[in-house]
Amino acid sequence: MFLGMSEAMLERLWQATLDTLVMVAVSGVISILLGLLLGVALYVTRPGRFLARPLLHGLLGIIVNVGRSIPFIILMVAIVPFTRLLVGSSIGINAAIVPLTVAAIPFVARLVEGSLNEVSPGLIEAAQSMGATAPQIILKVLLPEARGGLITAATITLITLIGYSAMAGAVGAGGLGAIGINYGYNRYDSAVMISTVTIMVVLVQLIQMIGDYLVRKAQHK
């Protein structure tokens, strides 16, 4: 399907693939890190847990829910002033990274909280009986024991970001989504359309395979 495309188009596709990867990688890393922090905070502050702060927990929960309920395409436009402030522009890859990250953080936070919920409360009790501090419980027990679930969460996040990045492409972010819209859709070039979709499918497959492999390696069950 890449046959018969002009050299310029192939060059464009290659560049777009790299752009997508950069957007996904940068927003992925930042949102996974911040989402992990937020997810742990949600987990430990829940009433009955070892750092129970019901008010803070409720507040964080509302923020996360609001973040998750705004459709990405609207969020992207709504935070343009914030994006400008941060990267000085509202178009291009750097500008796309900001809304991608903002949208993914609450998403990651809930996934992280969910995988931490899977850790047996008995393990936390055991750690407390050994005199563990709260940071020790988090770093030595919770996160290592939830490793498999956390890797799955990261995989899901990266794949979701590939989809979001294509959407961002439609409003000037560049990347595979932009190529697909501008050449494939608007100019009825089905070869380009199929190519962009195929590349994205391959990316998703690769991320999923790597994720599955890492989960298998992390689990001892």
Binding site: G122, S129, G131, E145, R147, A218, Q219
Partner: peptide
Amino acid sequence: LRAARHQIGMIFQHFNLLDS
């Protein structure tokens, strides 16, 4: 209390070992 707990070991019905 954390220091005192080092003097008190505990075992559980469901063992509570770390699988990782």
